[in-house]
Each structure stands twice: as structure tokens, then as C-alpha cells.
Simulated scan of single mutants.
Amino acid sequence: MSTPAPLVAWRPRLTVRLRMTLSYAGLLVIAGAVVAAVIYGVMRYVPNYPLTAANPRDQTPVPTRGELLDTIVTLSAYALVFLAIVGMAGGWYLAGRMLRPLQEITLAARRAAEGSLDHRIGLTGIKDEFTDLSDTFDEMLDRLQRSFEQYRRFAANASHELRTPHAVMKTMLEVAIADPEHQDVRELARRLQETNQRGIDLVEALLTLASVDNRAVELDPLDLATTARRAVDELRAEATSAGITVTADLEETLVMGNEVLVHQLVTNLGQNGIRHNTGPGGTLSISTRDHRLVVTNTGPVVTPQQAGTLTEPFAKTTGRHTGSHGLGLALVDRIVATHHGRLTLTPNPAGGLTVIAELPAANL
């Protein structure tokens, strides 16, 4: 036997416009009632004896206090009914005009909930609470639209980048299986190792990028020069192998930062300067001063338009390192943003890039 559904008491839906209308009308009626009560109270002090005209020949009847009070009560009742009608009609009209911007905001929010983020409210007129809410909502939609577009590009690029090394390894193995007698096993193993390492590096970079975006970071005072010096020492072997000359001018400067992430910041910028350089004979300069990290490298000419897109995931430029997955500067941008700092990328006239990462100074 099925259990009957519980009865839900019906409750009328009182819209904001109706409640505002009732409030306007109620206040108007209450104000009228107060005025009528005051007049009624004052009239009670009128003498109650029969009144006569100043001229005895004038026989015009003069009302008594009781008759005046009765008239006041009757007229007050009519006046309150009139005020109630005027308050309802005027309140409904005024409430509709006042709430019209809110209806536009509600429409935009409904469209956004359905997945349409290209609609903007754009309220104009006198600056008030509604225009402030409209501007804030439009800014939120702008940020959401940019985030979703970046997410779609990121997902598409990540899918492509993750698929590529697996497709390459699959092709090499299929060729080896089809003609095993004419395969150089040592060369095949080397190529498989390189392709597999590229996939591992890509996955690790994606995980690091997601970790920076989704965790709260504790910032402590640290010497940017000390952290940079340790990262530079680790980069010298790769720079020497590539024929890149590394110079470091590391001046002590205290910043608020996370040591692990700041080390990753210097490492990524250094690797970017080495791998996207001109090759043997190129230079890489790393300096710290005034809570800023400045990394300058030689390399191919980068246009200002290209520089503006390099912090997007999977953005790539020309350079000797063809196996780059394009996440280095994207991770740098996330790290600087996590530290509430500022990142500036400026193309050098002769080629290469100058990157300035400004971190918050430590107030000791």
C-alpha cells in the first residue's frame, strides 16, 4: 500500500512589487488616519454648549460639537478609502518603475544560467544601487566568459598534446611489429623513451598548473636572491649543454612568497630563456632587485601581439626546443597571480624576451 503524499499548504506568492505596493498604500492610509485622529482629538475640545451666531438676526443654524465630530469621522473614512486607492495605484506604478532594472538583471542571470554568457545589462542613468549591481554582474559575466573560453581552449589543447605522444609511440611500435627484422632496437628504445618523457613532463606540468590554481598558498618572508641563486645553479648544466651563457646579478631583496613556488617561477623562466634562445652563443641574464625578478634572453624576434598571448596555456614560439609543451609561462603567470604580484613580458628589439616578475615586498 503506497503512502499518500503529504499535503502541502498553498501559500500565495507575494511578489516584491505587490509587497512594495501594499507598503506604499499602507503608509499612506496610516498617515491619513493619524491626521484624522489628530483633527478628531482637537475637535473634542470645542465647547459642547449650543452655539449662536454673532448677529442675533442671523438665524443660520450652527453645528454642535457632536455634529462636527460625526462629519469628521464620515469624511475621514471616505478620505482613507481614497488614499488607499491612490496608494495602491500609485504604488504599483512606482514599484514597477523602481524594479524594472531588477527585472533586466534577473533576465541576464537567467540567460547566464542557461549557458548564454554574451548578454550584458548595461544599465544607464543615475548611479544607484541597481546600476552598481548591474555593473558588478556584467563584470562577473565578462570574467566567466573569459574563463570558459580559456577552459575550452585549454581542454582542446591538452587533449591534443596528450594524444600526440601516445599516437607517436603507437606508430613506432606498429612499424616495429610489422617489420621487426629491420629495426634498430637501441634507436627505437631511445625514441620511445624521449616520447614517453615528453608525455610525463606534460602531465606533470598540467598537474602543477592545476595545483597552483586550486590551493591556498601561505606566503612567508624570503630572500628572492637566495631562491634564485639555487635555481640558477640547477640551470647551468642545461645552459652549458645548449651553449647559452648565463649571467646572474642577484641582489638581496625580501619578498612575501612561497619558497617552492618562487623556485618554480625562477626555474620556468630560466628554462624558457634557454630553450627559446638562438642556440650556441645566446645569452640569459637573471637579476633580482627591489622585490623584482628580471629574466632577459636572446632569441627569435617576438612581436608585442605574440608576447600578449605567451602566458596562455600551450602558447608556443619559435626556438631550438621543439618539444616544448607551452605551459612554462602559463605556470609562471599563475604563480605570480597567486602571490598577488605583477608579470610583464616585453619583447627585446634585437630578439628574445625580457620578463619582469614583481612580487609583494616583505614588511618586517
Score class of each variant (00 low, 15 high):
112 A>W: 03
106 T>A: 15
62 V>I: 15
227 T>W: 00
135 D>K: 03
239 A>F: 01
364 L>S: 10
136 T>P: 00
351 G>D: 07
339 H>N: 08
213 D>H: 08
291 H>E: 00
179 D>P: 01
110 R>A: 14
282 G>L: 07
230 R>I: 12
207 L>S: 11
191 R>A: 14
316 K>T: 15
58 D>K: 08
48 N>Q: 10
244 I>C: 06
144 L>N: 04
131 T>Y: 03
173 L>P: 00
40 Y>R: 09
202 L>R: 03
67 E>S: 14
275 R>W: 05
6 P>F: 09
95 A>Q: 04
287 S>L: 05
355 V>T: 13
195 T>C: 03
96 G>Y: 10
24 Y>E: 01
183 Q>V: 15
39 I>P: 00
338 T>V: 13
334 R>T: 01
324 S>P: 01
20 M>S: 10
341 G>H: 06
42 V>K: 02
236 R>A: 10
125 G>D: 02
142 D>I: 08
222 L>A: 09
127 K>R: 11
72 I>M: 13
126 I>V: 13
294 V>C: 01
233 D>N: 12
233 D>E: 11
272 N>R: 00
363 N>Y: 10
165 P>N: 02
75 L>D: 07
230 R>G: 09
90 G>Y: 09
308 G>F: 01
355 V>M: 08
81 V>R: 05
350 A>P: 00
